[in-house]
Design a protein around this nucleic acid. Structure first.
Length: 227
DNA sequence: GCGACAG
DNA sequence: ATCTTGTCGC
């Protein structure tokens, strides 16, 4: 199901939006059995903090080659508040998604999905608004506790918060810090982890995140730190 | 009451 | 997120 994006005027309204939408998240899927394309989304900020660039790259799921990409430059749409982070970047990310020529089959977001205090992180919000399956891959935890996964790539341990498993702490590379994988929308946790491993043949972060990261940094630099 | 707190 | 120097490793 697709949902229109509404920009909240303040924190109270942002919380209401999350409460209203959280029940619509699909934690099961099934996600795309064998997606042909996977998109990565990332945002870079100017030093001044008053300007940002959002990028989306679409990769061939097998070769990991970039087949499409789009960028949008703008202003943070909301102050940074842990737990309300999505409202900050969502408008720019949606603008970039609108500029794509190829509609990706899966979204890999730089931030959490249901591993969130109200089970509605950026990956859930993006998945719901676009109607696309979405996965959250965070570099640091927001909620939850875990016991370190083994040191080898592919090893993982459950991320638990208030009595429920909200994601997995996954080692994507031998001996490197793990990432935090959680369901965004329309995919199960097992499949989400499988997709993330398929996107990390070499580095800690998914290729989708890396290509999108390079693109938004480049766009920010090209804008001469202004526009 | 005191920290912690996605990017 | 971004600011930063060097440093260890492939």
């Amino acid at each position: 199901m697709t949902v229109p994006y509404r920009a909240p005027a303040d924190e109270a309204e942002a919380l209401r939006v999350q409460e209203e939408l959280r029940s619509r998240v699909d934690l099961v899927g099934p996600g795309p059995a064998a997606p042909a394309t996977v998109a990565g989304l990332d945002v870079a900020y100017a030093t001044s903090g008053d300007r940002l660039a959002a990028a989306v790259t679409v990769l061939d799921a097998t070769s990991l080659a970039v087949v499409d990409e789009a960028v949008s430059v703008g202003r943070p749409a909301f102050p940074y508040v842990p737990g309300l982070f999505a409202f900050r970047e969502m408008p720019a990310l949606l603008a970039a998604l609108d500029r794509l020529t190829v509609r990706p089959e899966l979204l890999v977001c730089d931030g959490h999905g249901v591993a969130h205090p109200r089970r509605f992180g950026l990956a859930c919000h993006l998945g719901l608004v676009t109607g696309l399956p979405a996965i959250g891959v965070g570099k640091t935890p927001l909620v939850g506790t875990w016991t370190g996964p083994g040191p080898r790539r592919g090893e993982w341990s459950p991320l638990r918060d208030r009595g429920e498993v909200v994601g997995r702490v996954l080692r994507t590379r031998d001996g490197t810090r793990p990432v935090f994988v959680s369901v965004g929308h329309r995919i199960g946790l097992d499949d989400a982890v499988e997709r993330v491993l398929a996107l990390t043949p070499r580095y800690r972060l998914p290729e989708t995140t890396r290509t999108a990261g390079r693109l938004c940094r480049r766009a920010l630099a090209a804008g001469g730190d202004r526009g």
